[in-house]
Amino acid sequence: MASVTLTVNGRTVSADVDPRTLLVQLLREHLHLTGTHVGCDTSQCGACVVHVNGRAVKSCTLLAVQADGAKVVTIEGLAANGKLHPMQEAFRENHGLQCGFCTPGMIMTAVELVNRKGNNLDEHTIREELEGNLCRCTGYHNIVKAIAAGAKAMR
């Protein structure tokens, strides 16, 4: 067993895990933060995206032990004081989801995109940056709209 200590959504947590445990397994199975989804297990779909030290990372690609000492934010950590994060609100407002399975990953990717590239995002940039996030329902149209609106609202 390996011991890991990390900060998840502002809370320090420690766990003894099998060294091969993935970060997403630690989040979902040990910490019961099931908002982070597993869509493909092969790092294609992006449903498992979380922030590790501020960077968007596919948590099915990282071992839990690699996140030792890191600051992790999941979809559960975005809303504050009972209010949705502006990006979550934009997805709701713009019908940026249908079944919702890809949504946690989409939103985590989008928030990091805004942190990296600013609040004025054109359609081309958003579509290119969503390369690692798959959606089967929406055709991406309303996701792209939601991210543009959410980016402005994050100002």
Binding site: R127, L130, N133, L134
Partner: peptide
């Protein structure tokens, strides 16, 4: 049988409608 081999459309494969 997996997304490694089966090509789903990405956001940058499509325009807005």
């Amino acid at each position: 049988g997996s997304y490694m081999d089966y090509c789903m459309p990405r956001a940058d494969n499509l325009p807005s409608f």
